[in-house]
Design a protein around this nucleic acid. Structure first.
Lengths: 349, 349
DNA sequence: TTGTAGGCGTTATCAC
DNA sequence: GTGATAACGCCTACAA
């Protein structure tokens, strides 16, 4: 292993003492400057900042954490993550942390192991790590036991794209409903009248939301519009099965909305296997603009959420709160999705 | 935001003091037990462990970090990650950390911002965080400036799947060369004689390794075998372009090896656009067994690496070292890939 | 085998 | 406005 003992000894990091000495002020004054406390004269400020810069001083997180209430560390909670979705969220959160010299701690919880395990794991995490806040990524945003634990512990948290019980806490949201309405209208305006819907994992709230919005919107255009629904589970295989069902019906759909991109890719494959061409014979729209959207041909028309920004916002909310932000009221940052037109929808003459 | 002030105050965590008092021993004795130091009588051990259990005592990481040499925190360095690959690695590393009550810190570096930025960022990270070790995931495993910084700082690190200068440090490896030979043989044994190769991102060492192994192995079967090469860049689009080039040649390949799955998906799409059926008209093999491998039809024959285990091993190496492991010699954990037969290769009569 | 004293680098309290 | 001084929770000496 690369060895710490090799080579010349790294010179030790400067401490607050060093800075205080160099600037000719007291420890507490340096502390004040670092924490941007009020009541510091300009002159003192300058001296201290010069010394800090000179010595390349960086406060020691461990010491701060031990002595104070803040820990300069945020956690992200992931569950068996859809890698693309999650990584974009995390990348955004990481940037926010970096800007404020926070550390981002990675935490993984496997829903697959059952709810008991999840509760147990979060308790362990909360009991053994010192965090200033926790970011819950879907689908952890919608696990009540998790929220209970967090609140019992008194740890601030932000939920990303929660599907239910939204008002309960701080959150970062997108309007799935509105996005799906846009999808429905897009199909409708291009002349489609027979629709297929691939539902997501039914246990997940987002799944119902997307389904309901799609159906309601189309009904608002014409109450007895034809909509065939099939169960997907947010996977390619699920989409494949659902697609075969939808497209081999007696009067098959000409336009299929899948609740996410993986499902849409499955539908496209189903079409191909049935000898149907996309978009000539059947149009498809997905959701997420994930990796696969550009890994199919034609590339997939879909809806993109600003995940990096959402992750960034979540971390930012937690950090400003730790910096002494607004208490008592639940923040809510809302983001706009973007409809991405690509090649999988055809206009019917 | 979910409010810390709400609800009853959480009772403070037990400290070593509390444990010592409860067990009727000194502070140091508790410390000894926690750190599994020698010279503790069974009786004392029992008493202390009982008290620890009773009080649900967990040592405070910040305090330990401040007072001692260990920080119970590992970092993973990612670069603009291929989400699927990276997340599997990270999930493995996380598990190892969890088992030993270590924390996993997330760090992201963007090669896209240029090598200068990378060096600067790692310096910042190293200067401001207290880590026991760092895990380098590809492609960061092969950035010499990063290794230099790490060594200058004296921070132990493990490289995952390094492509060059392998002996320089501790590492977790797979035998790409061997895997690719297996791919070549698999094609060969099924009667293929005209080959296509989609190269990866040429700046990345793995790319050359895979290319050379493929070509050499086929030449060993027959020195003047036909191999058409085309540049991909590890992306779907790159594979698409390369595929069109390979498959529209005068005597097109019947078997194409793409240096990763995304590229292979591109090749499959290229085939489809040219009216070629996979695997009937052209066989394809990818590399990685990433998400897309199962999101195409037929699903992709490919090579799978045990990424979770590799991540686990990397973290484990760092942790045992921090626990006082072997110094001075570079560890090397090797893992076996697995060839995954699926539906994209046909046997030629 | 066990215990005591001192210090790690910062924040909090309370004087000046 | 500024500065002593005491925590914070643990580990490292060293002593018993």
């Amino acid at each position: 292993m690369s060895d710490r003992e090799n080579g010349q000894t790294t010179q030790p990091r400067a401490t607050m003492q060093d800075v205080a000495r160099a600037a000719g002020v007291s420890l507490k004054s340096v502390s004040r400057v670092i924490n941007a406390e009020p009541h510091v004269s300009q002159k003192l400020l300058d001296k201290v900042q010069a010394a800090i810069h000179e010595l390349r001083y960086v406060p020691d997180t461990a010491a701060r954490s031990l002595a104070g209430q803040r820990h300069f560390m945020l956690g992200v909670l992931l569950d068996n993550p859809s890698p693309h979705y999650t990584m974009r969220l995390v990348a955004g959160a990481y940037e926010a942390c970096r800007q404020h010299r926070y550390t981002l701690q990675f935490d993984n919880i496997y829903a697959a192991e059952g709810p008991g395990h999840q509760a147990e794991r979060i308790e362990q995490i909360l009991h053994s790590s010192r965090l200033d806040g926790m970011i819950l990524t879907p689908p952890t945003s919608d696990v009540p036991e998790l929220l209970d634990s967090l609140e019992r512990k008194g740890l601030p948290y932000v939920r990303i794209a929660p599907g239910q019980d939204t008002e309960r806490s701080a959150r970062v949201t997108v309007d799935d409903r509105d996005a799906v309405r846009q999808v429905a209208d897009y199909f409708w305006e291009r002349g489609h009248r027979r629709f297929g819907l691939v539902r997501g994992l039914w246990s997940h709230p987002s799944s119902r939301i997307r389904r309901d919005a799609f159906v309601e919107r189309l009904r608002s255009h014409s109450p007895d519009v034809s909509i065939i629904e099939a169960d997907g589970d947010y996977t390619f295989e699920g989409g494949l099965r659902a697609g075969e069902e939808l497209l081999s019906a007696r009067r098959p759909a000409t336009a299929v909305f899948a609740s996410n991109d993986d499902g849409a890719a499955g539908v496209m494959t189903a079409a191909m296997r049935l000898g149907l061409k996309v978009p000539h014979d059947v149009s498809v729209i997905g959701f997420d603009d994930s990796w696969v959207a550009k890994s199919v041909w034609p590339s997939l028309t879909t809806v993109r959420q600003p995940l990096e920004e959402m992750g960034h916002a979540a971390a930012q909310m937690l950090i400003s709160r730790a910096l002494g932000g607004h208490h008592g009221t639940f923040a809510n940052r809302h983001f706009e999705h973007r409809f991405i037109e690509r090649g999988t929808v055809r206009t019917i003459a």
